[in-house]
């Protein structure tokens, strides 16, 4: 009888390292295929004159696309609109969201149900929200003007014509303030009670407690909320298209990008350059927020 037969068949065991590789390699391949390659390829395209629907190959033009964008007044206007929109929208969301969180901080009968209901808007598809609010704003059939006391159609405001950017801000605040509220609530519930008890013993006023305990404690989560909402505001597209179709005065950078890249023009080279400019801006703003977050944490 041979030795092999006596010991039985040998079983090959996979090392931990091998198992890790087996799980990670497909993920990495997928990531490279779906994320890294398009990122690098679009960077290359941003230096070319190219249309994706054309049969001609990309032609290298160096920095020309970037120069064209940065010297085009209309692009600056797009950036200005996007900046204004982000500023108004994020500021209001922080105020409304944090305010709601303060009101819902204390538990009361039905507070759970109320919190859930408040969260509903952010779960609805932005396109649906756009159509929904377009009807609300409609001066002929919408309910907003009658609710505000306007009875005469002739004197009723046409929100989407007279205040298009503010209308989009209103809808965005309605939709995303609950997100800020959720993060703020998480921060508020994590504040230890003994801090307030100690402050009460010291006869600190409510304002003092808010300013010196509540706000600093919840600040890291608020900065994260600002970070997320600012990034989203800079990418705002669906609400704009749903509400105003991206008419002049509401043409954000993303709407312009869509028009350049897809809508009839298919300027793949210059739209890639524009996408990279937006990416750099978002990374820069994110960095500022992250630094602020780190400073708050260290403090």
């Amino acid at each position: 009888m041979s030795q092999t037969t006596m010991q039985g068949p040998t079983r090959r065991h996979l090392s931990d390292r091998r198992v890790i590789q087996l799980f990670i390699v497909p993920t990495m391949l997928l990531l490279i295929l779906m994320n890294i390659f398009p990122l690098i390829y679009s960077l290359y395209l941003s230096f070319t004159e190219y249309s994706i629907i054309s049969t001609t190959a990309p032609e290298w033009v160096g920095l020309q696309n970037y120069r064209d964008i940065l010297s085009d007044e209309r692009f600056w206007e797009n950036f200005a609109i996007t900046g204004r929109y982000a500023l108004y929208s994020v500021s209001l969301q922080m105020i409304v969201g944090f305010g709601m969180a303060m009101l819902l901080k204390e538990k009361f009968r039905g507070s759970g149900l109320l919190t859930t209901l408040i969260l509903v808007p952010m779960m609805v598809s932005p396109v649906v929200v756009g159509v929904f609010w377009r009807n609300i704003f409609n001066p002929s059939i919408g309910i907003l003007n009658p609710l505000l006391g306007y009875q005469n159609l002739e004197t009723s405001p046409e929100w989407l014509v007279e205040y298009p950017l503010y209308s989009i801000v209103i809808v965005d605040v309605w939709m995303w303030s609950p997100f800020v509220m959720l993060l703020a609530l998480a921060g508020l519930s994590a504040i230890p009670d003994y801090l307030y008890e100690a402050a009460a013993i010291d006869r600190a006023s409510s304002w003092f407690q808010f300013w010196r305990i509540t706000l600093p404690q919840v600040m890291p989560l608020l900065i994260i909320a600002v970070l997320f909402r600012t990034i989203e505001a800079f990418k705002q597209f669906d609400l704009v298209m749903g509400l105003t179709g991206g008419r002049p005065g509401t043409e954000t950078v993303s709407v312009r990008l869509y028009r350049e890249a897809l809508q009839g023009q298919f300027e793949t080279g210059s739209s890639s350059a524009l996408a990279y400019i937006v990416l750099v801006i978002i990374i820069a703003i994110s960095n500022l927020y992250i630094r602020a977050l780190n400073r708050v944490r260290e403090a």
Binding site: V161, R247, P248, R259, Q263, G264, Q265
Partner: peptide
């Protein structure tokens, strides 16, 4: 080039007719 021609056409017409610019 119809797509390129269409974009400014839409923009200028809408700005004047609807936006009153």
């Amino acid at each position: 080039q119809f797509g390129q021609l269409l974009e400014p056409t839409q923009r200028y017409l809408h700005s004047y007719v609807v936006g009153g610019e």
